[in-house]
Every structure is written in C-alpha cells, then in structure tokens.
Design a protein around this nucleic acid. Structure first.
Lengths: 339, 339
DNA sequence: CTGAAAGCGCTAACAC
DNA sequence: GTGTTAGCGCTTTCAG
C-alpha cells in the first residue's frame, strides 16, 4: 500500500518541472523529443498514471463515458455489453456506475449524474432511469426510461409490438383464456405491454377479462403472488403472458409448485430474453429485446452527440422477436393443428 | 446542457459559506440544525451533488469501490454481478472500469489502477489481471489472475479439479481417446486445466498422447484450428475437452461443419459455463465455475481489507461442478452401460 | 456555530 | 523549450 505517485514525483525523477511532465505525458507540442523520452521513461518506471479525478477537475475532457445503472443485474449488464461493443472502436474509456441506493431508491440517476457528469465523464448513458427530465451538463442518452421520451434522446424496445406478438402467438396456438402478469404500474414499458396484450385480444375478438390480469410489478415476489392468484381462479387461464422474464420465471416456479405442467397444462411467455431465460426448466419462450443492440444504439447516438453531430433520430425504437423455446404449446384438450 | 452546480452556487443560494455547505452536506458536526436544513434545501433545489473528482482529490475516502476489467464481456460481467451482490448491503458505490486499450493491451490493469486508485476509489477488484504484482495504493483483490498469487489476495476457481472432473467423466462414459483444446500457454489457469486433464488420464491408466493436444489459446480462431486438426487425425478422438467455453463452442461449430454429430460421434466438454453455453445447439456440457460466487467472495475479502481486518485466507479457491447438458454421450460403437 | 484560507494533483496560460 | 503560477471544486484546519 504505497503512496500514489504524483506528477511531482515524475518531475523530480526526470529533473524537469511538472508542466513539462504534463505536456510530455499528454503528447502536447513544445517539448524536446529527448526530454519527452526521459519523462516518459521516468513515468513508466514509477508506474505513474495521471489521476483521473485531478485532471478532470482541471481540464475539460476526460475521455471517459459513463454508463449509469440502478443495479448490476442481468438486464443492465446486457445493455452494458452492448455499449461496450458500440464504444469498442473509439478512444473512450467506459465507466459503469451504480450507487448504493439504500434509502432513496427513487431518482437515483439524479444523484449519480450530479456527482460524475461535468467532471468525470464526457458523456453518459442512463439505463432505465425513472425520468428523462434530467438537468445535465454533458450529452446524455437514456435507455428504456420509465416515463417515455421528453428531455433526453431515448433508445427503447418495442414493448407494445412485442407483447402483441406474444399474445397473438398464444392465440394462434389455440388459447382463449390468457392471463397477464403485468409490470410496474408507473412504468411506461409496463403500460405498453399491457396495451399490446389487450390489442392482440381485440384483434382476435376475444373479450378482455380483468380477472385475468394481476400485477407482478416486474419483481419476483409480487409475480409469484400474481401467478398464484391466476392459477387459483375457478377457471384458470391456459396461458400466461408475463410482462418480463423475471415474472415469467416466477410463474414457472409457482406452476411447478402446484404440479401444473408447463407447457402441457399451461403455456408461459416472458419478455426480455435475459440469459437466464434459456437456462430455466423448461427453457422459457419469450419476447427477445436485444439489450445489447439497445446499448450499441445508445452508444452510437452518444458518439454523435459528442462529436457535435445531431443524431439521426432522437427516439429510437428497436424491434423485438419471439424466441420459442419450451414453455408454449396448444392448450390442453385441443386438437393439435398446424400453425 | 447547463453548467454544473458547484458548492459555491449552493452557498450563495443559502447565504452561507462554502465551508458550511460542505459540513451540512456531509453531515458533519458543528452546523446549526436550521442552517443545515436551509443548505440541504438549497442543494436539493439546485440539483447539487458534490463532484466525485473534486472531493476525492481533497478528502481521503470516496465510498467508491472500483472493479477493473479488460473488457465488458460475458465472463467479466458475470463476475461484476457477483461483486455487486456482495457489495449490496454496504454503503459503497460500485464503479466498473474498462479502458480503451487499443494499443497496449498488456498491463491494462496498471494504467487503470494508476489513474483511479488512490484518488477515485477506496478499494479495487481486478478481474483477470495479467499480473498480481501491482504497485497499489489501496486495498486490491485479484480474481483469476494469469500469474497466480504473488502480491495480491486472490480468488480463483479450481481449474485443476474442474478439468480432472470433466475428463474423468468422459472416461466413465467409455472414452479412451480424449482430445484437449488447450488454453493460452502463458496463463496459469490454462496450465492447471491441462494438468487436470493429464491427471485424469493417469488415474485411469490411459497413456498421454501429445498428438491429442492442440492449443486453442482461449480464443475462437485458434480453437477452430485446433479442433479441426484434432478431427483430421487419422484416428480422431471420440471426445474433446476444451479449456474454456469459447473453445468448446468453436469445437462444436467445426464439428458441425464437418458433419460430425455431437454427441453421438463426438463428445465435448467446456469450462466456465458462460450464459452462452446453455444456449448453444446442442446445449454444452461444461465445468461450471461460478463467476458470480467469485465476485462475491472477492467483495467480501475486499470489505475485510477495507475495515482493516485480515481476510480469512488470502488465496481462495472456489469449487467447480460439472453441468451435463447435451454434448456428452458414450463413444460411438460402445455398448451403453450404467454410469 | 460560521467563515477564511490552504491545498489535494493536475493543466493551461503566460513568462522566461 | 521549459518553468512559474493560477485555479478547477472540494474538505479541512484554524480563527473569529
């Protein structure tokens, strides 16, 4: 646990002033080649690297892009991979940040952005923020915000289309009683997915039955209860569309606990296609939204912004596709028919 | 793109000095309750958050832990999730960093650590560093280093045991000619896995055949060639153990290209169990090392170090287990027997 | 209880 | 070409 080497140490070692070291290290003009070489050598030997904190405080650019997430969970880390790929070819370093939001869970993005933006990072990507109404000091792109596009450029998946497609597929398989484990009421994506569900029903002329909708809130516990309630109905649904994979996975668990066979007695479709979805037992059929593509798209947008170019579109909606694995089948008692 | 609010703005708004604002915001003693309230209110209204860069420069602690990775790829992000979980209950913020190492790929951890440690982060976890011989200014824990434990506390998976287990299983299935797509020669984990392979062979009295070993270097291209060479042998192996999942997945591709059926004509076992392993076709049998557990273990160690406690052990080796999916079967032409 | 002032490590003017 | 110096935003003595 040695003391950090500072620019002064390097200056002393090379027998020059700190200013010269700064110039040499940053490759600025106005330093004699041999001096620069000497300085670089000293820096190398001392294991010196300029402190990000200090240089960002002083100079303007840092060459660092921030990705802000509420938590490092599967969804966000997939996005992160995408941002990384989209940033790969550039000179930017990537810094992913998650605060410990033990108390004030809400508005987490505000705190983090205030602490890092404008000093440490040149630009930011906010993953699933609760608002796009941020007072920002650097270019920022939002991915899948709760409240829909307002202030910030946004990248998101087609929640409506994806949900509609999923439910349509269930209908094609012959299901008529289709339950919904819905998402968090205050989230735009959740509302959109519910609308997609209803639209698919409408399209097929199936009346909407409020009894078949329970709130899973995108979280495990609530989803378990929601799924349980659905299965306890006097006439339970033969299929359940869950607003995200977490809910779908929870539904699978509840079904197994009650001895309900999936997919023979109950079909389940999720939304997201997190890595875990492919590993569940049975593997989950789900609506895939490519988190990685969203990340890469956001990176591209941010790069445009950073270069002073206006991005092509400030609101990008990425398509989804249905990945059929093993949790969907025709409803019990139905003659299998071609699809 | 508004100018960042600084402590001076808050001071002006609240009609106090910057010193008072600092104290109030950080909850230090020596501020009248009503003054503090006024300051906090002003800070809130202005959306003020103290600049991480500036405060870390001045004060000692930042309350931020850094996780340093070479790239945000599946392996590293799994570890990151684990660190996050292990850090969950604490007050520390988590910051994951990956530099753009376009030129000097080697020694990446040195540069990043030099720039952030000692100023921005209170402690660090380095994921798969090329050395544990780091000159560090804060507590650091290494996960799966290339060179084995030396200077830093280390968390790693049991490469030797895992490899031995995998090959033993192939032998149990009846295989006698077992190929190895080995890892990068300079990496400790690769050497350990090769040793495990040889030991399992020894245990079963199967002579080691150097012709059955090809270098895959943990990367796709080399692994493809290695697998190809193995399959082109006059007497090709009936099973291949690959030193990581990437190599195993590449082997699967090559086999498919040549019309070699997996698992009927060729069994394949990988190592890691990255999420992609479960999604391959057919799903890959592999040695699971829980990256998440490694991350959590490293977090626990670091927390100990940070608190001034000595961690239980400075070198933690986590167990592995075999996940049998669909790429393993008895060799062709062998009577199926109980295992 | 509050404020003035020093200084953390660094970069950018500006002298020399 | 090189060195001196003034802050960047913040925390921390130390006076008042």
């Amino acid at each position: 646990m040695i003391k950090r080497r500072t620019i002064a140490d390097v200056a002393a070692a090379a027998g020059v002033s700190v200013a010269t070291v700064s110039k040499a290290v940053n490759g600025r003009y106005g330093v004699a080649p041999e001096t620069a070489a000497r300085v670089l050598k000293a820096a190398e030997e001392l294991g010196y690297g300029s402190s990000l904190g200090a240089s960002s405080l002083r100079g303007g650019r840092t060459g660092v892009i921030g990705v802000f997430v509420a938590a490092f969970e599967p969804w966000a880390t997939e996005v992160l991979k995408g941002v990384y790929v989209g940033m790969q070819a550039t000179q930017y370093d990537l810094l992913a940040y998650s605060g410990s939001y033990n108390e004030d869970h809400d508005g987490w993005e505000r705190r983090s952005l205030a602490r890092l933006s404008g000093t440490l990072v040149d630009g930011a990507i906010v993953v699933a923020p609760s608002t796009t109404d941020l007072r920002v000091t650097v270019p920022v792109v939002a991915i899948d915000p709760s409240k829909g596009p307002a202030g910030l450029p946004v990248v998101e998946a087609d929640s409506f289309g994806g949900a509609r497609m999923a439910v349509r597929r269930l209908i094609e398989l012959g299901h008529r009683r289709i339950g919904l484990v819905s998402g968090r009421a205050d989230l735009r994506s959740a509302a959109l997915r519910e609308t997609g569900y209803r639209r698919a029903l409408d399209d097929a002329g199936i009346p909407f039955d409020p009894a078949l909708v329970r709130v899973g809130a995108y979280e495990q516990r609530a989803s378990r209860e929601a799924a349980g309630a659905l299965l306890d109905l006097p006439e339970p649904p033969t299929a359940i569309f869950a607003a995200n994979d977490l809910s779908a996975l929870a539904t699978l668990q509840v079904a197994r606990l009650r001895g309900v066979d999936v997919p023979d007695s109950l079909s389940v479709i999720g939304f997201d296609d997190v890595p875990e979805a492919a590993r569940s037992d049975p593997p989950l059929t789900t609506v895939q939204q490519s988190m990685q593509r969203m990340g890469a798209a956001a990176a591209a947008m941010l790069l445009d912004l950073l270069d002073g170019r206006d991005p092509q579109e400030r609101h990008q909606v990425l398509g989804t596709r249905l990945v059929e694995r093993a949790t969907t089948a025709p409803p019990p008692g139905l003659l299998r028919r071609a699809t």
